[in-house]
Each structure stands twice: as C-alpha cells, then as structure tokens.
Design a protein around this nucleic acid. Structure first.
Lengths: 251, 251
DNA sequence: ATACATTTTATTGTCTGACATTTAATCTGG
DNA sequence: CCAGATTAAATGTCAGACAATAAAATGTAT
C-alpha cells in the first residue's frame, strides 16, 4: 500500500483508495483489524488527521467500522445486503432527482426489472409473501389513507413481490429501482377512482402469484405499468396547464 | 441542520447525515456552495477537523466536491450516472465476494435482469451497438486470448446489449449485476471448446438483436445462462475432486 | 482459587492553532 | 486597456494535546 506525495490528489483520498484496493483485492479480509491511526500515519508518512479523513471516507462506504478503547481500531466490515441496499436507495434516489430523468424512463426501468423477477416469484412464492401482498392491498383500499401512506404501501407490496423471487442478489438490485421511484410517485395525487383501479390491478397480481401463473402475472404487471404512466401523464398535463394559466395571467 | 452533542454517535457522522438529509430533501440544490469549513464548524459548534471528516464522508459518496482557493469550497455535486455506476460496481463486487453468494444465485440474478432489458434492446438497437457486439464476438474467437481478456470482452458484449435498451436508469441498475459477476466468471477456465460454444451463443444473440426478434433473443439468453451454469458447475466439481484427492493423500 | 473491584493502557474522538497551497479577485504600472 | 504582481479566502496538511472509551492487567477480599 503506497501513495504518491507529489500527486495533486488529496492525500486522504489516495490513502482511502490504497486501503480500498487492498480490501477489494482480498489483501485485507473481513474482520481483520487495520493498523492503528498512528501506525497508518507513520506508514504513509502523513499526519493522523489525514489518516482519519481517509478512514472516514471508507466508513462512509461501509467498508470499515471503528471501535474505541483498548484493542479497538478500524476493522474491515462485512458488507451486508442491508447496508448495500440502503446505499443503493440513496444513490438511486439522488440520481433520479438530480438528472431530470423522465417519469417514463424511470417507470419503464422499474417495471422491466420487476417483470424480470416475476416468473421466479410466481414459482417460489411463500404463504408469508402472499399474506403481505394481501394485507397491503387491503390497506390500500381503506379510505382516509394519505397519498404518502398509499405510496409507502405500494412500495411494500412491490418489495414483497420482488423478494418472493427468493434471490437476495436480485432483491438488492431491484430495491433501488423500486424505492427510488417513490418520490416521483408521490407527485401523483391518487383519486378514489384511481386507487380503486390500482387495487384491482394489485389483486390481479396477487392472484396470479398465488396461482403461480407467470404469464398472467406478466400481463398484470404490463397493465399496471400502463396505468401508472397514464396517471403520471395526467399529472404532468395538469401541471403544464396550471403553468400556462399562470403565464397567461402575468402576461 | 442540527446535531445532538450528547449522542454517542460520532459528531462527524451526525454532521454528514444532517448535510446529506438536506441534500436529499432538496434544501441544498446542485452546485450550491456549502458554507466554508470554518463557518460550518461555528454553526455546529465543533472544530474544523470534525467538519472536515464529515465533508470527506460526503465526498466519498460523490455527494459533494471541493475546490481550493478563493471562492472555492464544498459544492453539492450533481450525481452523474458514471459516478453512481462506479459506486454500484464496487459495492456489488464486494457484496458478492464477502457474502458467500453462490454462483447459481448470482447467475440467475444477472440473467433475469439482462432478459428484462432484452425486449427493449431488440426494439431499439442501434448500428453502433450491433457493431460493438460483432466486434467483441470476433475478439472472443481469436486464439491466444487470456481468460481475463475473454471475460472482459464478455462484459463489454453484455453491456452493449444492456445499453441497447436506450434507458440510462436500466443501464445503471444492470451495470452492477453484470460487472460484479466478473470475478466469479474469472474463476472459470475457458477451454477452446467452451469458447467456441459461447461465441456461437453470442452470435445467436447478436443475430436476434439484429433481426429485432425478442422471443429468439430471450431463448438465446436462456441457453447462454444454462451453459454458463454448466461450465461453472464443472469448475466447482473439479475443485471438489481435487480437494477430495488431497484429503485422501493426507489421510 | 475465584469473583469482583480497581488501575492501567491502547485506541479512537475531538480540539486548538498554525502553516502550506491553491486560486480567484484586486490592485498597479505601463 | 492589458499584463503582471499582490492580496485574500478557502481548502489541505501538520503537530501536539486532551477527552472518552473499553479491554486487559492488576490487586483484593472472600
């Protein structure tokens, strides 16, 4: 592990990269203790604050954890699915919010991915998963639910569908796609009529899963995607109309 | 933006969270300049090194960038697809290497996702994308190629297929799945015979894409997945045999 | 000898203050 | 008006200190 003191890059960034590379290469294994901050400072010939900045960078990526006290220190962290999941949701959410991704593109991606795991879900669905889906459908049918709560329930419903595939890697990859869509979905105001329609489509999905009927499930998802896009378009249009009216007034 | 000085959590972690939440909530917008480190230190009532550790955490997640000099400082970073992509690859790779994910599970996830975007790719394929796929197939057919180079070409080929869907969100989500598999794929030793088979299957895929024949493309991908798993299983078996032999000798 | 309380020690967390480096803005002389 | 020198503001880095924590070592009483 070496750094170049003459490089224009931050020393802490270089040190973080050196350690990260060592972890990726397997030179540092899970739960292994790194040298203490002072030792690292000596090794890289920098000050302790600089080493600490490097370690904080790695901690931000969940690559290490630190413990205080005697026999404490920084340890290589076993990256858990939940940690990776949380990071992916944050990243995906910001990515969508900062890059002017159209609703259509995001929606297409989400449903394409969801349909990818649908056949596996249909095959392997568990009673637990079915119960979750039914429970969320029931919740979505209750009046007085806020739009946010409705969307949250929607996410839970779809997560159950995805997790039903029984493939942790797949669940992890899809988590970002499904959850990152939520802020966009929250823009939609769900009328009683549209909620009714969505509940009906969700019921179709749950039925198809229960019947382990993959083609029917795929068809139901396609219908739901189409309906979601329809709703979003009407929202966009009403926004545009309002903007146009405003424009008209000021003119 | 506030922190709790009595919390047991690191101050730098709290500050990072406060700023991160502000970015996610949209209180800090892209390219907006954060207060200087000294000002942040005053605001949170901590020292400058503590603020710096917090900022490095955010920099590690590509949420901010820093610039030196007058009128420099920390700016909210527009998260680019490439940055998010790179992070996802790192995370996914470590996730697989640290969690004893079986080849079958990873492979299933990868091909399920890839098949998800296949219909879109078939519909929207560009001449450029087709050219890339053909070029990589040609490279894969050349003798003297190392296993690593063969795998790298494989990744490029599949990326072309994925990018062909013309959906950046989808490409981003799939990037991790495809690239993270590479270390696992690198374990396989490709015989001349198996390379030939893979090239043939890749040709089927390219032909299906060119013909914009989605069902044919899906079928080709299913065959490739089955063959990939077959190869991996033979590798695992030969490993087990060798281990058994070793065991026998020492006994 | 063992269980419990105390002390020691190693380590991270935080602070203070200073200097180095970089870069944009400002000033100054031609 | 322009080019170069100067200034100022910001991050990058360093050194040394102290606080907080938690494990290990030590002492002590039963």
């Amino acid at each position: 592990m070496r750094i170049d003191p003459d490089s224009t890059v931050d020393l802490s960034a270089q040190i973080a990269k050196a350690i990260r590379d060592a972890i990726i290469a397997g030179d540092l294994i899970v739960d292994q203790r790194l040298p203490s901050e002072s030792e690292l400072a000596d090794h890289f010939d920098v000050s302790r604050p600089t080493v600490r900045e490097a370690l904080k960078r790695l901690a931000a990526q969940s690559l290490i954890r630190t413990q205080r006290g005697a026999s404490g220190g920084a340890f290589v962290n076993r990256l858990r699915f939940e940690d990776a999941y949380a990071q992916q949701v944050t990243t995906s959410t910001l990515l969508l919010s900062m890059n002017a991704v159209s609703f259509d593109v995001a929606c297409e991606a989400r449903y394409a991915l969801e349909r990818a795991c649908a056949p596996l879900s249909a095959e392997r669905r568990t009673p637990d998963q079915l119960a979750t889906m039914r429970a969320e459908i029931h919740r979505q049918g209750q009046p007085g639910l806020t739009d946010e709560a409705f969307c949250a329930s929607d996410v839970t419903f779809h997560r159950a569908l995805v997790d039903g595939a029984g493939n942790k890697v797949l669940s992890y990859q899809l988590a970002g796609a499904v959850e990152a869509m939520q802020p966009l979905m929250n823009m939609i105001t769900f009328t009683a009529r549209s909620r009714e329609e969505i509940v009906a489509l969700h019921t179709d999905i749950a039925n198809a899963v229960e019947a382990q009927d993959a083609p029917k499930l795929d068809a139901a998802l396609i219908k739901l995607e189409a309906y979601t896009r329809l709703l979003a378009h009407s929202v966009v249009k009403s926004h545009e109309n309002r903007a146009a009216e405003k424009e008209h007034k000021t003119a």
